[in-house]
Computed example of a mutant assay.
Amino acid sequence: MVFPVTKGIHHLGLTVSRLEESAAFFKSMLGWHEVKRRDDYPAIFVSDGTVMLTLWATKEAPATPFDKNRNVGLHHVAFTVPDEATLNSVYERLQQAGVPIEFAPEPLVGGPAKHLICYDPSGIRVEILWPGP
């Protein structure tokens, strides 16, 4: 039997077209903190204490938006929350901030898990998931 040699994700690098706004999304909407910056690239590293994202600024403008139905690449990134109340609270915060929402909290494949999908300012699809009791 072959056993995995990896132990999870250390970080995920995302290319974003609106670096400051994307970092602010993770900090203000999800309560993440900024770990560091690299002005020479430029990049901003944000974390929830478990996962770290490296947000890299695009080099060319205008950036080409990702199409999940046509391109190979990141379809979405999903983060878990501890309970249904937190999922609903995040949804309300996203709504109040005018964040584009693909769908509100709904059962995931019949439940009891629930999830929502929204978009960060650069158009990255972000799923927030409560895995259920």
Rank of each mutant, 00 (worst) to 15 (best):
Y91S: 14
T6C: 12
T86D: 04
G132V: 06
R93D: 09
H76T: 05
P82A: 13
G110W: 07
P112G: 10
P42H: 03
K27D: 04
T86W: 00
S28F: 01
D40C: 01
S28A: 14
I117W: 02
P131W: 06
V109E: 07
H76P: 06
P65H: 09
E127M: 04
T54G: 02
T58Q: 10
P42G: 02
E127T: 10
K59A: 13
V5I: 13
E34F: 05
P82D: 12
L12H: 06
G98C: 11
K68P: 13
N71D: 15
A63N: 09
D83C: 08
P65A: 12
V5R: 15
E34Y: 04
V72T: 10
A97P: 04
A63I: 01
M52W: 02
F103G: 11
K36T: 13
M52S: 10
S89M: 02
D39W: 00
G110P: 08
V81L: 02
F3C: 10
R38M: 09
H76A: 03
I124P: 05
A78R: 09
Y91D: 10
E20T: 10
G123Q: 11
T58A: 12
E102G: 09
F66W: 05
G111T: 11
V81K: 10
E102R: 14
K7A: 15
A104D: 11
E102M: 07
G49P: 03
V77K: 01
N71W: 01
A57Q: 15
